[in-house]
Nucleic acid binder design. Structure first.
Lengths: 144, 144
DNA sequence: TTGGTTGCAAACTTTTTGCAAGCGT
DNA sequence: ACGCTTGCAAAAAGTTTGCAACCAA
């Protein structure tokens, strides 16, 4: 069986891309941070290698997402949030009040997924989804 | 029964806000356009009244959304898209390939909504949701 | 008259782009 | 060597803010 940590390097090159220190650092940052905006990725990378540039982060995240190594969703109205895909595919649920973010297995959205496919023939990209709302704790806090 | 077109003006004033031509024009633009970014709203309004400013559009959309007269979602990675709430509450489904956007009644998402509430006690704001994916037409076009 | 609103201009945040130098293969 | 990548700087895109004049109530 192939070493998963080697696999992506091979795929990168297989697509005609080159393996550079920047790309390793940026992918590593996403993996270490869990969820991070391009800005946060840049800061994390620059903490070790200060010469890395912001435009490289944007260009690299695009490449990594194209390879399916990372994904992004929108946890705020501002910058997108990138996250690793090495774990199980998941989507997000975020409370507007306390800001808490929960990651859920895509199967939790099966009800919606199936309905969209049955009714419209539409195949949803659940991994990109973020559902906003109010969490239990915040609702109970208000009702008291 | 109250005239719905008068209702919002009353509510606006009820909250201490003032009824201005700009606010009427901007709400009207959203209603006429269906879905529109702040930029598109500005262009639509300026076609009639060229003096209206972009910052007024941003400030007004915020007020109108606070009153529940309009809502916004993210149909692109760029500017938010505003839409009227005068019709039924709905969410969006967008095909990444052809760009088509379909509005669906929030009940279509009941499967997900219920699951989030039952499992997490989380009440989803379905009206803010946009689900990305691939529509039937684009999938069939590729499979041939 | 009062104070919420607006237009304007400048500042800001986030992302994109052109380009020459640099480096992976 | 070839040409994909990077850093840099400038531009672009979208939004926010301070402020004096303005106007709805």
């Amino acid at each position: 069986m192939p070493d998963p940590s080697e696999d992506w390097r091979a795929r990168l090159r297989g697509q005609g891309y080159r393996l550079t220190p920047q790309r390793e650092l940026i992918l590593g940052a996403i993996e270490e941070l869990g969820h991070a905006t391009p800005d946060e990725v840049l800061a994390h990378v620059q903490a070790r290698v200060s010469s890395v540039n912001a435009s490289t982060v944007y260009r690299t995240l695009e490449v990594l997402e194209g390879l399916g190594l990372v994904r992004h969703t929108h946890l705020s109205d501002r910058a997108p949030t990138y996250h690793s895909v090495s774990g199980h595919e998941h989507f997000h649920v975020k409370c507007r009040e306390c800001g808490e973010v929960v990651s859920l297995d895509v199967e939790v959205a099966d009800g919606l997924t199936r309905r969209l496919e049955d009714d419209l023939g539409f195949v949803a990209d659940v991994g990109h989804l973020t559902v906003f709302g109010r969490c239990r704790a915040c609702r109970e806090a208000q009702s008291s």
